[in-house]
């Protein structure tokens, strides 16, 4: 079966070989460029409107995922639970893994929570530098107060066993 990774494996080198050839842009390219600008501006407006409606600032909670360092960890999947209820899950592509390794921050979840005490549980499946698949659970209790509440999950691994370790930071 064809996976994007497999397709890229065959196609990417082919694309690279032709990429530097000078090809004049066509009228369609110019139309696409103009449309891209308009669609992007419109999407930002819609996105902002949706945020305001669906995630009111008083109840808004956002969770971010980062890699604390380039330690050979390959994130495979993340599942997120708030107060025991699954709220987000993500299976990582190679492109996303690379983006995280290069200092990218993923906005994993945006939702709503009432003020008061809550519990967040992150279940992270990773492949370690030693080529082992490990599933790690991390639980954190926090108190949601009025205003946007942001939590950062930082994934790291330390010598000598290089097993994954999740640190949860709260941003006020």
């Amino acid at each position: 079966m064809l996976t994007p990774a497999r397709l890229a494996q065959y196609v990417l080198p082919l694309m690279v070989l032709g990429s530097t050839q000078l090809m004049a842009s066509t009228a369609v390219d110019q139309q696409i460029e103009q449309l891209r600008a308009r669609v992007s501006a419109h999407s930002v407006e819609v996105n902002r409107f949706e945020q305001e409606l669906l995630h009111p600032v008083d109840t808004r909670v956002a969770v971010f995922l980062t890699l604390a360092g380039r330690n050979g960890l390959e994130v495979d999947a993340v599942e997120l639970f708030i107060d025991g209820q699954p709220v987000a899950s993500h299976l990582y592509s190679k492109r996303e893994r690379n983006a995280l390794e290069r200092g990218g921050v993923q906005q994993l979840f945006t939702g709503n929570l009432s003020n008061g005490g809550h519990e967040i549980k992150a279940v992270i499946s990773v492949r370690t530098a030693k080529d082992q698949f490990i599933r790690r659970e991390s639980v954190h209790r926090f108190t949601k107060s009025t205003g946007t509440h942001r939590l950062q999950l930082a994934l790291d691994a330390h010598a000598p066993d290089y097993e994954p370790d999740v640190t949860i930071t709260e941003w006020k």
């Binding site: 956002a62 971010f64 921050v105 946007t148 941003w171």
Partner: peptide
């Protein structure tokens, strides 16, 4: 009010550009 903390903005943009 912004959802992304200022300290994480650069990382979020990097992730968006890479994906």
């Amino acid at each position: 009010s912004p959802t992304v903390p200022e300290e994480l903005s650069e990382g979020v943009v990097r992730f968006a550009l890479a994906t």
